[in-house]
Structure formats: C-alpha cells, structure tokens
C-alpha cells in the first residue's frame, strides 16, 4: 500500500509537500484579514518616521529591543498598556524582536523625550551609567534617507491602500515639495527639542541627520 511512496521520488516529494504545507494553510492564511485591521485612530507613519524606522532597521535596534508588551502585570507596570494586534497594522515589517537585552520600546514615546534620546544615542552611559549599549554617534552625521522612505509611503499607499494624503505622489517633484513643506518642519521641531546645536544647524540648512528621523520614529511609538 505504501511501498510506491518509498520508490517514487516524485510522489514522495508531493507527499512531503502536502504534509509540510498543511500547517501553513490551516494556521496562517485564513486569519490574515482579521489580524490586519488597524485599531481606531491609528495613523500611518509620516515619511520622517518611516525614515527613522529605516535607521532603526539599519542599526538593527531589534537585536536587543522588543516592541511587544505581553499581558502580564510586571510588563504593563514597566512599559505601559499591553500591545494590541491592530496597533501594528502599518508595521511593514513587524519589529517585535526576539530578545530583550535592553528594555521594550513599544511605548517608549510615552516616557522618554527627544532630549533624552539624543543624549542616550550619543553616549548611553551619560543617562544610564551601567548601560552596555554602544553609542551611535554616526547617526548624528549620516543623513536620513527621506527619499527611500517617501518611496515606501508611495508604495504602501498604492499597493496596500494605507491611508496617506494627496501629498504622497509617485514623482520626484512631489517628493521635493513634501520634503520642504512637511518633512523639514517636522524635523525642525524634533531638532529643537533635542537641544543639540549641531543637529539644529544641520536641519536649518535643510539636511536631516539620521538621529532626527530615528527620534521622530521613537516618539511615534506610544
């Protein structure tokens, strides 16, 4: 009855495939629609925040920081309200992380200021003396990639109907307009709150360093 399976590589491969695909078909696919619904009032990331998310990915904060508050009292006491599925509806990719060498960041915007972040990224020991986190001074020099972030906003608006306004359009001119009218003022606000003269001067010249974008992103996490 089963002997053919052991001799025929093709049928064998089909058998293996059915068995391993089974879990995915039943488990993952049907729940997609439910889990993707945003909670009420959830706003998509601004382009500056998206650029900050790219910095977060690039310097791989996810290696040590989670963005998922589990429903335990010890966690809600420490980090705030536990995480809901709908809060992640615009997170592509998800950045939950798998290891907490440092604390969770899902609601870090509630209890840290741009000023604190700036000091922390420049020299973590200046705000947390026992910190083992490395300093990320290069974020104060490298420029954030707003254009790629803008391209991402255009893409998710088009492909996934993420609710962005008319200011997100697939053209270079639209990006430049957005950069001047929306992104720069937003960055300036952050830069002023950071109390770092060099950064402020850069933004006033129309350049946005990575740190400003990153802090904009961290401020969004609430």
């Amino acid at each position: 009855m089963f002997h053919w399976l052991e001799k025929n590589p093709f049928l064998f491969a089909v058998g293996v495939f059915v068995v391993i695909a089974f879990a995915g078909l039943v488990e993952i696919l049907p729940s997609f629609t439910n889990a993707a619904r945003p909670i009420k009032g959830l706003k998509p990331y601004t382009v500056l925040e998206l650029a900050g998310k790219e910095v977060y990915k690039k310097d791989n904060c996810i290696a040590c920081h989670s963005q998922l508050i589990r429903p335990f009292k010890a966690e809600t006491d420490r980090y705030g309200k536990y995480s809901l599925s709908g809060e992640y509806a615009y997170d592509r990719p998800f950045l939950w992380g798998s290891k907490r060498t440092g604390p969770d960041l899902h609601r870090v915007g509630n209890y840290r200021t741009p000023d604190w972040h700036a000091n922390h990224m420049w020299d973590p020991k200046s705000v947390v003396p026992a910190s083992i986190m490395p300093a990320y001074k290069h974020q104060f020099k490298n420029l954030a990639d707003l254009e790629t972030a803008y391209a991402e906003a255009v893409t998710v608006k088009k492909v996934f109907n993420t609710p962005y306004g008319d200011d997100i359009q697939p053209s270079k001119a639209a990006f430049e307009k957005y950069y001047k009218e929306k992104a720069l003022p937003e960055a300036l606000k952050i830069a002023k709150a950071m109390k770092n003269k060099d950064v402020l001067a850069m933004v006033q010249q129309g350049k946005i360093p990575e740190i400003v974008a990153l802090i904009a992103y961290l401020e969004h996490l609430k």
Partner: peptide, 22 residues
C-alpha cells in the same frame, strides 16, 4: 512602485504587523 524614487534595492514586506510576525 514610486516612479523611481529612493534606493532601488529597498522593499517593503507584503505582510503587516501580526501577520508578518506569523
């Protein structure tokens, strides 16, 4: 999808949030 903006190698995941995690 953006008419040639940004880095050519950048991409965004097809899945969001919880789905992406799954």
């Amino acid at each position: 999808f953006s008419g040639g903006l940004g880095h050519w190698y950048h991409s965004v995941s097809m899945y969001a949030g919880t789905n992406d995690a799954l």
